[in-house]
């Protein structure tokens, strides 16, 4: 993100992702509260069904983008030493990247397996 775009764009990403996260999060909460899968096969079948898979595919990057804007805000607010801030930002960036790829792998495995 460029220095110029880091204000408005970050804020916009946060707001738009929040809407999707709220809606899909509500669906997830209701699904697991009222019709939870009984075993792994059911869970895999649920996650592999086209609409749920699409929903999850959108959910994961938006969740990570939202988390990134949030954690970046926290670090900008509270962590002043530049080295520490950049180090923590890099740490979270790597963690989020790894989580995203791991989740993507899981989704692909559900599809092919």
């Amino acid at each position: 993100m460029s220095r110029r775009a880091s204000g408005l764009k970050a804020w916009l990403v946060q707001r738009i992702s929040a809407v999707y996260l709220a809606l899909f999060g509500l669906y997830l909460a209701l699904y697991f509260a009222f019709a939870p899968p009984q075993d792994h096969a059911q869970l895999a079948a649920w996650a592999g069904s086209p609409w749920v898979a699409l929903g999850l595919l959108v959910f994961i990057p938006l969740l990570l983008a939202h988390a990134w804007v949030g954690i970046r805000d926290v670090l900008i607010d509270y962590v002043k030493p530049l080295g520490l801030r950049v180090g923590l930002l890099a740490l979270f960036a790597l963690m989020f990247l790894a989580s995203g790829l791991w989740a993507l792998q899981a989704l692909i495995l559900v599809q092919v397996g």
Partner: peptide
Amino acid sequence: ALEGPYKLFRCH
């Protein structure tokens, strides 16, 4: 002049 992460967007 208000762009960037600080001047305006520190408001939560």
